[in-house]
Amino acid sequence: MKIIVNGAPHDTTATTLAGLLDELGHGQSKIATAVNESFVAATLREKQALNTGDRVEIVAPRQGG
């Protein structure tokens, strides 16, 4: 299934957001997620189904002003 992860095309076999994060090697990383511009809480990643064309954002803490 073709989706977009952080702005780049990605081919995945994962069917949920949690599965995608495992596939990408995020493990226990300190990250937050959104799918199709909507926030998905960590507790809801297992239930968040992925569909072709979905846009997934994965972010982490960074420097800011």
Binding site: L24, I58, A60, P61, G65
Partner: peptide, 22 residues
């Protein structure tokens, strides 16, 4: 301290390292 969120790739530790510093 003001901070932000930015994209992170799998296996990258930049977020965790920055968080530890803060």
């Amino acid at each position: 301290a003001t901070v932000s969120v930015r994209r992170e790739a799998g296996g990258e530790r930049a977020g965790q390292d920055f968080w530890d510093l803060i």
